[in-house]
């Protein structure tokens, strides 16, 4: 039982990551691919934050009467990663807008057919 209490968080996070990953590699629509990518990344962020948690600790901001803080380093890393993620999303979405204008579709198999036709 304690084994499950110790690990349930990791396992659910793994499940979420794989859901996102599945959307990325299986979706045919490019917008959905980007949504999947974001879900994948957000779930990875959860993995990092999970490992920074200390049971009974508080947020790492100095407060009187508190001795146990959660680990601030994963928080810093994930702050960085979130911003990196939104940067990638923005570039990906603007590529989609251009693809729509150039091909008239954002379904992967359709513009692949068009490319092959040339």
């Amino acid at each position: 039982m304690s084994f499950i209490i110790d690990y349930y968080n990791y396992w659910i996070v793994v499940f979420l990551m794989m859901t996102g990953f599945y959307i990325v590699i299986s979706a045919n629509n490019l917008v959905k691919k980007i949504v999947g990518l974001n879900i994948f990344q957000t779930s990875v962020f959860m993995l990092y934050i999970t490992m920074g948690k200390v049971s009974g600790g508080t947020a790492p901001i100095v407060a009187e009467g508190v001795t146990l803080y959660s680990n601030p380093l994963p928080h810093v890393l994930i702050l960085t990663a979130i911003v990196v993620g939104v940067a990638t999303t923005a570039v990906g979405l603007s590529l989609i807008v251009r693809i729509k204008r150039a091909y008239g579709t954002v379904e992967e198999n359709e513009f692949q057919n068009e490319d092959d036709a040339i």
Partner: peptide, 26 residues
């Protein structure tokens, strides 16, 4: 999980800006 800074960023960047951009793309 005590990551208030991260939560703040995720809410404003992930849920805010990313969603707005995705809606704009749609």
């Amino acid at each position: 999980l005590d990551a208030v800074d991260v939560a703040f960023t995720e809410a404003s960047v992930g849920a805010g800006i990313s969603t707005v951009l995705m809606l704009g793309t749609l």
